[in-house]
């Protein structure tokens, strides 16, 4: 019961912050609020028993991403321009997509149901083998290192590609645009 109350209040915070991000036009405030959103979602992860994910989200999602945004803001204007055009079409798309998702989500097994399909196949095996076979008490680390090593390899490749892309975009040779030339 206490866990449910904590959950509901955390989710309430997240909703408020998301709506504030939507309405605010000052970009620094938007960035700091997105950091706060990540931090509260990390607290939510602890409540949902995902401690490793909570650590990563707090360090990487709330910390490093915010630092990246702040560093980029050094070269960018701090205010979003005011617009007059109505935003009905995007709202319509979001309502339709949201309704479809909610319809689909209502067919999922109930939250916390121990007999749901995701908990039936490999998960019990991972939990049983984690300590007896590999002698690693943390099941998440065990799966990451002992069973899904190629995932981590792929992740490293993605980060390498991302870093390479950032370096090339920011320091690469620039083509000087003239009036004659059509870049599109």
């Amino acid at each position: 019961m206490a866990s449910l109350i904590i959950n509901i209040s955390l989710v309430g915070f997240m909703l408020v912050i998301a709506l504030m991000i939507l309405s605010s036009r000052r970009l620094f405030a938007v960035i700091v609020m997105s950091g706060a959103y990540s931090l509260i979602s990390a607290a939510m992860f602890i409540n949902l028993d995902a401690v490793d994910v909570a650590f990563t989200e707090a360090a990487v999602g709330a910390g490093f991403t915010t630092v990246l945004f702040m560093a980029a803001m050094a070269w960018l204007p701090a205010e979003e321009k005011r617009r007059e055009t109505p935003r009905i079409f995007p709202l319509l798309i979001c309502l339709v997509v949201g309704a479809l998702l909610m319809w689909g989500v209502s067919y999922l097994p109930a939250l916390g149901d121990p007999n749901a399909a995701p908990h039936q196949y490999v998960a019990p095996r991972y939990l049983a083998e984690s300590y007896d076979k590999w002698h690693i008490p943390n099941a998440v680390t065990m799966v990451l290192a002992s069973y899904r090593g190629f995932d981590t390899l792929g992740e490293v490749v993605v980060i390498f590609t991302g870093g390479l892309g950032v370096l090339l975009i920011l320091t690469g040779k620039r083509r000087v645009r003239t009036d004659k030339e059509d870049e599109s």
Binding site: D49, V51, L111, G112, D113, P114, H119, S130, N138, A139
Partner: peptide, 9 residues
């Protein structure tokens, strides 16, 4: 899982 705890054995 309701009633479960973090997966640290």
């Amino acid at each position: 899982i309701s009633g479960g705890t973090a997966p640290i054995i």
